[in-house]
Design a protein around this nucleic acid. Sequence first.
DNA 1: AAATATAGTGTCAATACAACACTAAGTCAA
DNA 2: TTGACTTAGTGTTGTATTGACACTATATTT
Lengths: 229, 229
Amino acid sequence: MPATYDHPRAALTVDCAVFGLDDDGLKVLLIQRGIEPFAGRWALPGGFVHLDETLEQAALRELREETGLERVFLEQLYTFGDPGRDPRERVVTVAYYALVRLGDHTVQAATDARSVAWFATDDLPALAFDHDAILAAALNRLQAKVRYQPIGFELLPPKFSLTQLQRLYETVLERPLDKRNFRKKALALGILQELDEVEQDVAHRAARLYRFDEAAYRQKLADGFNFEL
Amino acid sequence: MPATYDHPRAALTVDCAVFGLDDDGLKVLLIQRGIEPFAGRWALPGGFVHLDETLEQAALRELREETGLERVFLEQLYTFGDPGRDPRERVVTVAYYALVRLGDHTVQAATDARSVAWFATDDLPALAFDHDAILAAALNRLQAKVRYQPIGFELLPPKFSLTQLQRLYETVLERPLDKRNFRKKALALGILQELDEVEQDVAHRAARLYRFDEAAYRQKLADGFNFEL
DNA sequence: AAATATAGTGTCAATACAACACTAAGTCAA
DNA sequence: TTGACTTAGTGTTGTATTGACACTATATTT
């Protein structure tokens, strides 16, 4: 169904910076482009926005189609639209960032031949388009946001130890934290539910497990509580 | 020059929430729509993005064309793109917010007949499209941002008293601040330049005037200084 | 039983924060 | 000119928060 307009229009896409955490640190999900421009280069997953879906729906759909991911934490980041960011024509992209629990999902390449892989955020290949700038912005946002909103839990398994939580913060903030101070503060937030379970299969004293208490979080959020860590 | 595409495309616009400050409090600049849809309703200034300009350039151009404002502080806010937010067709808008010194500029209606006016942010008329949601987001952002970045100076004249500065913060944050504590903190930021001038034409002891020291600000920003007030 | 590896815990000093009230300096009007 | 008025300007103190710091507990492995 061809469409005709008085004036040429920009194309509109969404792109997602998807972060995951494993023992090696912070990872980002990239797909390898199969077609020009930038064929063979790695890029953020994304694609064109359909006319009948919201921007967020478009981002979730592209994630599902291109990587198999579903039910991730997703938030709008920034809109990139400089002329020339796509060599073919004017393309404006609404960038999102997403957080996933690495254990939960195994990513898979989409139906077409493009491959999907996790890359360490501190050792990235050259990216297509201006995706390096988008990714840098996403990392900045993640770092800023994690300070005052407990979004980091989205990167951890549902049950986690305080040590895992601390490693997460140390990884994202890129600085070491004092163990005792961290534990005091984390527990003082009042949004961790202590479980009657401990780690399994570790070659040392097992750590107690906690769960993120979303109900308590919502309650405190409504009361204007400050979640700075 | 008509353009034809395989698939229909969303239209792309920018909208600006422009804030100013006067003795009555925080104001926002609105224009009255001349045409349908929402003819006669007040709306945020904005318009279509041209293919050869950046999003920010589009926002600045629309501001100039519709309100006569130039050289304002401008920052991207969020992109609103739900289907149905414009009754005619799919329109995605990249929203910006801007801060201006009310004394500096007199706004004027654009060449066409639409009128322009400042409205108190706490007493707004019904707005066109989803502009009430955009404006609410802009106010939230301003409030959050002013806490940790000294952007408030953009709302004040170049030379201002500490009392004016405090009134600004009290207005934006919507709570009273302690005079002595505020002055201590504000001066401790090290980004205020004390001038050898005082207020003129006031019916009481005149206050010393200060200027925002941008050089010092940049310096401290680079050093990772924390500008929380 | 010893070695190893991580879990888990409290104190103290320094700093930051919040509460609080009076004097100083100018204008204006009687 | 003096008194009333209005806003400018200034320090201290108690409280809360932060950051630095080291050892014991508990499990596994050899």
